[in-house]
Write a protein that binds this DNA or RNA. Structure first.
Lengths: 334, 334
DNA sequence: CTGAAAGCGCTTACAG
DNA sequence: CTGAAAGCGCTTACAG
């Protein structure tokens, strides 16, 4: 335990600048008033000494931090690193840092949140998971605003930001109907996720209205899951005319498995994904998909959190943002 | 600014438990001695009140934190999310949290590091970038241990952890020679990176020893970069017998571009990548590549940092860990 | 083993 | 606009 004190404090700067420690503090505290002269003297002294205000002392008094806790599960799905990048960039501009928590749980538990509470984070984002009652209570009691990103919980007890999954999957069904398909399959993600449920619901609703046959296969939002589902479908000899896959990364597995069995996409089977991850545009896949409006989703999340940090209201709502269909070769032979 | 004090402090717990505030502190401070009776009384009271030690007050005194700063550039390359996941998991077990910094710079600047210094992080990892002199000086002056992960700077002034890029690329060259190729291309990543330089050097050294013709194309470690480089090569009519691509994500772009021009892999051109990202195993690519031993690389990084945190020595070394060649269909038609 | 007290480096009323 | 002083919630010598 040899860490030595850096030892340059506001006191040191004050001495060198010939002002009080309070004045030094005021220079670094947004909103405080200092004369131009004092400011200059302080900044000069600070620069000479290499002064840096201690965030911990600061937070101890203000009981506020400039840290946002970001809890993420699916780092394996390229959609989420993109989300991570955007959140980091957006919050950096606002002077916030990201405390990153990786989790394996579909439902965030108390101990995943504990770290964040210990650091008294200003806000929490959970990107692809929900959270346990206890975990939520801990956040609530500490008045820490929370956003569920790309997940929602039934009811209006959380602020969530998703794309409009229901409407999106309806439009996907309508698009596939228009291309003349009449025998379809839905491949789900993890069944307990709101995204998979809603994408199923929208899709199925339209198919049933149009009296079109469909079948559902349960998978898990991974490439391997998509791949193996096709193996199962092929082994049962139940190749449909179109497959709606609950996310892109699974859809890539679906396409690769179909290729392996020399089932032509889109001639024999049309495939539609969801997310518009970078890879869906790669020529090996050229996947028709639904673009999630990440920019807008991130913006809404950031706006809500900064507002709640500024003045806590506990306001909750399920925000849904429209995306758009991106047609590529997996449904349309150009 | 309506955030209300949670207000449950060691003092409150002390009152309820009928002990002094110091005793409460001792229960939560590892290494302090408390009697079993006191401990029980304190824990009971703490549980009743929902007490949680304030990390900021703690860090203010100890001048140490349980935070590791992780600076990452290439979140778009699937190699790095995997690295992020492993670091988060490893440090969580040790009670450390990750402060995540995303950067666009190949060379980390002072202001990227500033946040980390403000939070007095216990250690810093930079995964795919180097750092400016000033940034390094700031870390050094504050005795904050640093690891360059998957990058190194010439000389021995930093602790870096890489795979053995030189040896790996030599073996890749030897492997390609054995398959009978005699006219090769190296597609580089960003030219200022140590990884790209070393992979080039190892590859070229062996080719020159064997008097084999090669050409170098400069690219940028992205899928698009790989794709466009092939467009250039094709337009020049200079298709080689084998291409060594400095990382996998570029190699996928290379394969897709070759496919587009109906140049058969591996029959007409063999392709080798580097990293062994998940996608390289996907059947659409089946890319021969070099497996970076992420587990071991992460372990060595974590071991070094924890040792330096425990007792700072400033010790530096370039650690290089062996990987292995993974042969797939992009070089070998089974 | 335990308590009273000093102090970490700041912010923030309070006077002037 | 500025300074002296109190205090944020802890850890840590120091006595006992």
């Amino acid at each position: 335990m040899s860490k030595v004190k850096q030892g340059i404090t506001a006191k040191d700067v004050a001495k060198l600048a010939g002002v009080s420690q309070s004045s030094v503090s005021r220079v670094y505290f947004e909103g405080a008033t200092v004369s131009q002269k004092t400011r200059e003297k302080v900044l000069a002294a600070a620069k000479e000494l290499g002064y840096r205000p201690n965030e911990f002392a600061r937070s101890l008094i203000t009981n506020r931090t400039k840290i946002i806790g970001l809890v993420m599960k699916g780092v394996q799905n390229p959609f989420y690193p993109q989300v991570l990048k955007q959140f980091t960039t957006a919050f950096k501009k606002l002077g916030y840092s990201i405390l990153f928590v990786y989790t394996n749980n579909d439902e965030i538990q108390k101990d995943d949140i504990d770290t964040l509470l210990n650091y008294n984070v200003a806000g929490v984002i959970i990107t692809d998971a929900t959270l346990s009652l206890q975990a939520n209570e801990d956040l609530f009691n500490n008045r820490i605003p929370l956003v569920l990103f790309n997940r929602k919980i039934v009811g209006n007890k959380f602020f969530s930001v998703c794309c409009n999954n229901l409407e999106a999957s309806k439009q996907i069904a309508q698009y596939l109907l228009k291309t003349g398909c009449s025998n379809m399959i839905y491949i789900s993600g993890n069944e307990n996720t709101s995204t998979s449920k809603e994408r199923e619901k929208g899709f199925v609703t339209v198919l049933e209205e149009n009296k079109v046959k469909y079948k559902k296969y349960i998978s898990d939002y991974t490439y391997e899951g998509g791949y193996e589902t096709i193996e199962e479908i092929v082994s049962q000899g139940k190749i449909p005319e179109a497959i709606f896959v609950a996310n892109d990364i699974m859809a890539l597995g679906v396409i690769d498995a179909l290729k392996k069995h020399q089932i032509s996409v889109p001639d024999e089977v049309k495939v539609v994904g969801f997310d518009n991850i970078e890879m869906s545009a790669w020529p090996s896949y050229s996947l028709t998909t639904w673009e999630q409006p990440i920019n807008e989703m991130v913006k809404r999340t950031v706006d809500y959190l900064t507002a709640e940090i500024n003045e806590y209201s506990g306001f909750t709502k399920n925000i849904e943002i429209d995306g758009r269909l991106i047609v590529r070769n997996s449904t349309y032979n150009s």
